[in-house]
């Protein structure tokens, strides 16, 4: 009986292996298609002018997207400025006092925040900042993106610090080092790679966000470094230009897509490098 079943089992085994392989290949197809189109349409647009010039008015050819590049950097910078320190401190708190009631609520909040759709976060930033200031601004966009980064950084900091052996903290305290200095000068540097990874993941997560910026940073055709004024960003520019009827603008949109994807790809490579060093 057993003998006669053997070939059948082997067939089943081979078949399921084949199926798994097939699906893995299928999964790669959408990615390949996206990359194909973005590279095909975007690579040709890349030029020094594209990176350093402002967009030209409709009808004129050429022009670049320097305002969106600077805008994205400013927005991500603003978001990082608030969310990285806050996320790190919250992460330390959660890892140190994880069993207290407060910490449990804080962790729940962070997890819920992580699951909130980005458009809703945009609305919150709109009500908080845009309505208060009375106009769209880079700051409101930074707040929206910061709120999205916060949970990523908090949770990865918590995980990282939890993995650091307790004996290290004890070693420092036993030398008469005060608690806060132990955390800042011993525990944080030891977990630096993990925390950095969290920060980079957070940045990659928000660098391509469009929805929360639609009614916060809003977009702008001008070069702007004033954080109280509306500001352009790569995803916003892609959204606006690609849906426009002008061929010149659509081209810029493809170029911006290529640039954005390349930036995020580089970030993941850096993140991988940092993680490996750990």
């Amino acid at each position: 009986m057993i003998k006669t079943n053997m070939p059948l089992r082997m067939v089943k085994d081979k078949a399921s292996q084949g199926l798994v392989f097939l699906f893995s290949v299928l999964l790669a197809i959408p990615l390949m298609v996206i990359l194909f189109y973005v590279v095909k349409n975007g690579l040709g647009v890349m030029s020094w002018t594209f990176l350093t010039h402002l967009p030209k008015p409709v009808g004129e050819s050429g022009g670049g997207i320097s305002n969106a590049i600077v805008g994205t950097l400013i927005l991500v910078g603003l978001a990082s400025l608030v969310s990285i320190p806050m996320g790190i401190f919250t992460g330390i708190y959660l890892s140190e006092y994880g069993n207290t009631k407060t910490a449990k609520y804080v962790r729940l909040c962070v997890e819920v925040l992580q699951g909130i759709p980005s458009i809703v976060i945009g609305i919150v930033a709109y009500v908080w900042v845009v309505v208060t200031l009375g106009h769209f601004s880079a700051i409101s966009g930074g707040v929206a993106l910061g709120m999205m980064m916060l949970p990523v950084i908090t949770l990865s900091t918590e995980e990282t610090i939890k993995l650091i052996p307790k004996t290290l903290k004890e070693a420092s305290l036993a030398l008469g080092v005060p608690y806060y200095r132990t955390m800042l000068s011993v525990i944080l540097p030891t977990g630096l790679n993990g925390i950095l990874t969290g920060a980079l993941l957070g940045i990659s997560r928000v660098a391509g966000e469009t929805a929360p910026l639609l009614f916060t940073a809003f977009g702008s055709p001008f070069m702007n470094a004033n954080i109280t004024k509306p500001i352009q960003s790569l995803p916003l520019l892609i959204f606006n230009y690609s849906t426009s009827p002008y061929e010149e603008w659509q081209k810029l949109g493809w170029g911006a897509s290529f640039l954005l994807i390349s930036m995020i790809f580089c970030l993941s490579l850096i993140t991988k490098g940092v993680t490996r060093k750990r």
């Binding site: 052996p165 004996t167 290290l168 004890e170 070693a171 420092s172 305290l173 036993a174 030398l175 008469g176 080092v177 005060p178 200095r181 132990t182 000068s185 011993v186 540097p189 030891t190 630096l192």
Partner: peptide, 30 residues
């Protein structure tokens, strides 16, 4: 804790510091 030093069951040097800085850790961290 500065007057009463402690050595633990498992060696626990600070992994981010050099040998030199490990010895000085009590001063530098303070």
């Amino acid at each position: 804790r500065r007057k009463i030093g402690m050595v633990f069951q498992r060696p626990n040097p600070f992994p981010t510091m050099s040998i030199y800085d490990n010895v000085l850790a009590g001063y530098q961290l303070n």
